[in-house]
């Protein structure tokens, strides 16, 4: 669950400067989230398709991911057409389907899925560490960037610790059920996870101080825009401007 399945690849998008990818994903999300024009959504879909082709990712893997995330959206999309006030087009007992509600639900479905696909294609194709690095160059506060870096670094370590604790309770014949005993066991498990993490953080910090840590990370590697990056970002900028005009007209 904590893997980055789309991050390793060799394509146009994978090699594109992460700073550019963050900016484009961000502006794309804002434009699509705020528009109410179907034509803009169509052009946004075309943008996603082009990016998809450029990533050379497997369509099935991406669709699988999109399907999993859609549970909450689908719940909304099913309820909305019946709860939205407007012109009734179909009545089934007490349930009334309204035209406005139907279109509202359709828009939400399209917008959510377009943005989340774009996030997968542009951001999940970068490792979290290069994203943090790129955010640093985009002048995100350095403490925040360090937090991202360390949090992601230690999620894996602590997850393994959790699995170890879980194995230990299972070996002692623990089977989770709906009762106080189960909840208490989980509470003790989380508490010891927190204590172990706290102790670990002290050791990590001392080890870092021993190696000269003074509260900041020096950055040795800087991103360099290639001609390819420049051309592609120019094309994408023009496209997004056109999309913004369509979206907010």
């Amino acid at each position: 669950m904590l893997q980055e399945p789309f991050a390793n690849g060799n394509s146009f998008i994978h090699n594109l400067d992460p700073r550019i990818r963050i900016l484009f994903a961000f502006f794309f999300a804002i434009i699509v989230a705020t528009t109410w024009h179907l034509s803009a959504l169509l052009w946004a879909f075309f943008f996603v398709v082009v990016v998809f082709v450029l990533t050379k990712l497997n369509m099935r893997d991406i669709l699988k991911r999109i399907l999993v995330v859609n549970t909450f959206i689908v719940l909304l999309v099913i309820i909305l057409p019946f709860s939205y006030p407007g012109q009734v087009i179909y009545a089934l007992g007490p349930l009334t389907l309204t035209k406005q509600g139907f279109f509202y639900a359709l828009y939400i479905f399209l917008k959510s899925n377009l943005i989340l696909t774009c996030v997968i294609l542009l951001l999940s194709t970068t490792s979290i560490f290069s994203l943090a690095h790129a955010l640093h160059h985009l002048h995100v506060p350095s403490k925040l960037v360090q937090l991202i870096f360390f949090t992601f670094r230690y999620i894996h370590v602590i997850y393994r610790q959790y699995q170890k604790l879980m194995r230990a309770v299972k070996l002692r014949c623990f089977t989770p059920k709906t009762n106080i005993y189960t909840y208490k066991t989980y509470a003790y498990l989380v508490a010891s996870l927190l204590i172990k993490s706290y102790d670990r953080s002290e050791r990590v910090y001392k080890a870092m101080v021993c190696r000269g840590f003074q509260g900041t990370f020096p950055v040795f590697r800087h991103f360099k825009m290639t001609t390819k990056d420049r051309l592609l970002s120019m094309a994408a900028t023009i496209y997004l401007l056109f999309l913004a005009i369509l979206a907010w007209k």
């Binding site: 360090q146 230690y154 610790q161 959790y162 498990l189 953080s201 910090y205």
Partner: peptide, 17 residues
């Protein structure tokens, strides 16, 4: 910063339980 981050990864892992 390192201490806070490690605690917040513990909360992240707890939210996966």
């Amino acid at each position: 910063v390192p201490q806070t981050a490690i605690l917040s990864s513990a909360f992240f892992v707890a939210s996966l339980i």
